[in-house]
Design a binder for these strands. Structure first.
Lengths: 216, 216
DNA sequence: TAGATTGTTAATCGATTAACAATC
DNA sequence: TAGATTGTTAATCGATTAACAATC
């Protein structure tokens, strides 16, 4: 009976953490020291209890009655939980519009993500430097991933290439894959996959809108 | 007692539909007429029963024992359910890297999305034409949205501008907002919001990876 | 008929919400 | 003390999984 933690954070809860973090950092800028769970809840239109449950799973210190939670301490706890404090380095494959967009996004520094190398099979792109990150030919994927110990692979290729690229990344020792292609990737079970799929996200919006419009 | 449909599709189920659709279209290309639920399930690594439940909620004809589901009919049903058959036109605001990536993505035609106009406050971008879509100044947002009856707004601006842009889109008559900024948007309750948030998606991956690495 | 496939009903699991007790 | 806030336990809701019955 190895119950280690009464509070386990739900997947949905993890998704709320970046929003908490953003709000907390705003408060920190304003110099606030403590915040009640109710204030966080209000800013995100969710229930207080949910915030408390999430924080209970993540926070190293309990909240203080009549006062709330320490802003600084919560920020540190959330960043630790999310792994933002051990700055992950990543390889990006597919330097198209989307790939370039990700490479140019400076906000990632706040999320513990550092795109250390990019790869593309187009010789015209190889050798270019985008936002301080060099583009290498596909042939050097394995060599560079291993050498620089890159643990995250970002796939921004067209769908037909995604599985092949995924396999190459896995062979190169990558432990987690952030997949932007509309494909269900097959990976060994010790490799994590996170899909960021425009098609899926839009499907949700489109179906809701279609339903609303039909009702009118 | 207005029970209209025994089968209501879950949110998670809606998210699976685009993957079903993609697989079915592949089968269609190969000329297959019928497919059993088990085959769809296998291609996505999920349970048969789940596929059947999802299809039951969406499909206009039941599956045939020993045969499976009609591929053509399923494709039509899913596209109808997702609203892909009534081709939504959208306004995109924020022509940065990400905005350009979305504008250039030709795959959207398959998802019933047509980005009809783009807007940016940078005069250098105004007047440009990206992938057949013109960039207009922000001042003309309301006029063009109303005139072209654009129902979807896509926000690809930096986070600080997102709420203001959102308000402008709502005033311009938009009914649904696809938000790529890391902000919780506040909207009237008859306006739909779908967040596509890189920070959230990456948080999930990063936290799982951090946990895995800690265990080692 | 036997077997592949469908569809339904019940059981489990996970996440949210509500009700309440505890604390400074 | 009263009241604001926390934390916990129980109830509800929603989604997945399992078990089984129905059909060609």
């Amino acid at each position: 009976m190895q119950e280690q933690d009464t509070h386990v954070l739900s997947v949905q809860g993890i998704k709320r953490l970046p929003y908490y973090l953003k709000y907390l950092k705003e408060l920190q800028t304003k110099g606030m020291e403590y915040v009640p769970a109710g204030a966080i809840a209000e800013s995100l239109n969710i229930y207080e209890v949910q915030v408390r449950k999430d924080l209970a799973a993540v926070s190293s210190q309990p909240g203080k009655p009549r006062v709330g939670f320490s802003v600084d301490s919560l920020i540190a706890d959330i960043e630790h939980f999310l792994g933002y404090d051990c700055a992950h380095t990543a390889a990006l494959v597919g330097v198209g519009h989307l790939g370039k967009a990700l490479m140019s996004y400076s906000g990632f520094a706040d999320y513990g993500l550092d795109i250390a190398a990019a790869f593309d099979c187009d010789p015209a792109l190889v050798g270019q430097c985008i936002h301080g990150c060099e583009v290498f030919p596909m042939e050097r994927l394995s060599e560079i991933c291993r050498q620089r110990k890159l643990l995250i692979g970002i796939i921004t290729t067209p769908a037909p290439q995604a599985q092949g690229v995924c396999d190459a990344l896995v062979r190169a020792g990558v432990r987690a894959i952030w997949n932007f292609a509309h494909v269900h990737l097959h990976v060994p079970k010790d490799v994590l996959v996170q899909n960021e799929d425009m098609a899926v996200s839009f499907a949700l919006l489109s179906s809701k809108l279609a339903q609303t419009l039909r009702q009118e």
